[in-house]
């Protein structure tokens, strides 16, 4: 048993953290041109170059053969800088393709030739519909511009739908202005790849939870550094206990969610009996940690935090996107209370 990242893992995380902070810091959204485009083609090629989408895939298909825990550590880094949910979708899509033995498509996704975007479907029952290859219903697509596939999960089955099979796509303004939202309707649409593997549900849940943990940590760090630099009444606001202790609580909240994230990813990897319970626990805690810390970060920034001139608001908004995506396919309570 060892819950500390080894030196190789720490090295990977620090390289990725530095890369994301330099290349696509959350500050990028200060450039209005980039709003509504958390996906960018040039970034994509860089992520592909790092092997992002195949980190836990076998070397025989061009992956790095690292673990799911490494993959969720990357998800956490992506969450810190509010990288596009398209990264989550494409990572999950690679898992879906390899689970179904569709290696050519997995490789196209890993090498950046194809890309999947994430979609939320409220009342979809993929399994029932696919007998007739007949998916119907309203979906919400995130950063789906130029994506080749749409990834949807209903909590039991996961599938990839060809983007070209979608008709009736309509752009809408998203609460999170860093994301391009589209509303679309599935009508007798068929799946390109489909799996009923429950492990895919766990992987998608963990990737989303990883991003939420990243949000909780980034909010904590922003709040702490602002508390150090901002002065009122002649001293740093971090020297006032009301602020100082809020920051401490943010640290505790983030740490608990991170520890549980690592534990859950390992429990899934090691196929432990409690894996479902562990994943549900981190989903519950990561959602709460992200919104609690995102809210406190706005508060600690005061008036500035309420403006769009600073990025504190973006963490709040992205939380809602990930939370709704999770809630549409993943229920925590039955999974947590069923094991006693």
């Amino acid at each position: 048993m060892n819950l500390l990242p080894n030196s190789e893992q720490s090295e990977i995380v620090s390289v990725i953290r530095e890369f994301l902070a330099n290349e696509i810091s959350v500050r990028r959204y200060q450039d209005e041109e980039l709003l509504g485009r958390s996906y960018s083609a040039s970034l994509w090629q860089q992520l592909v170059g790092m092997g992002w989408f195949g980190i836990s895939q076998s070397e025989s298909i061009g992956g790095s053969a690292l673990g799911l825990v490494d993959e969720v550590m990357l998800a956490r880094e992506a969450g810190r800088q509010l990288v596009s949910p398209t990264v989550i979708a494409t990572t999950a899509a690679v898992h879906l393709c390899t689970a179904m033995g569709n290696e050519p498509l997995a490789q196209q996704l890993m090498t950046g030739q194809k890309r999947a975007a994430l979609a939320l479907a409220e009342s979809l029952n993929i399994e029932a519909s696919t007998e007739a290859n007949n998916l119907n219903g309203e979906i919400k697509i995130f950063d789906g511009e130029n994506a080749d596939f749409i990834f949807v999960c209903d909590g039991h089955s996961s599938c990839l739908i060809k983007a070209s099979a979608l008709t009736d796509r309509q752009s809408a303004a998203c609460i999170d202005e860093s994301i391009a939202l589209e509303l679309a309707t599935l009508s007798a649409t068929s799946c390109e790849v489909l799996s009923k593997e429950s492990s895919l549900v766990n992987i998608l849940a963990l990737l989303l939870a990883g991003n939420l943990v990243g949000i909780a940590e980034a909010a904590r760090d922003q709040a702490a550094s602002y508390a150090i630099e901002r002065e009122q009444f002649g001293k740093a606001i971090g020297s006032f206990q009301s602020i100082n202790h809020m920051c401490a609580d943010m640290a505790v909240t983030a740490e608990a969610a991170w520890a549980q994230l690592a534990y859950a990813a390992l429990a899934v990897t090691e196929k432990m009996d409690c894996a479902e319970l562990q994943v549900a626990s981190v989903v519950l805690l990561a959602k709460k940690a992200a919104i609690d810390n995102a809210r406190d970060n706005v508060q600690i920034h005061g008036g500035v935090g309420f403006t769009v001139e600073y990025d504190a608001h973006l963490f709040v908004k992205r939380y809602h996107v990930y939370k709704e995506i999770l809630d549409a396919f993943y229920e925590c309570q039955p999974r947590i209370l069923s094991e006693s």
Partner: peptide, 25 residues
């Protein structure tokens, strides 16, 4: 009651994860 119990169970799991992390460290 169920919602409170559910949240606490998740937190007790996190406590165990934190304990394991701390023992590792």
């Amino acid at each position: 009651i169920a919602a409170r119990l559910c949240e606490m169970k998740a937190e007790v799991n996190a406590l165990k994860a934190m304990t394991y992390m701390s023992v590792s460290k």
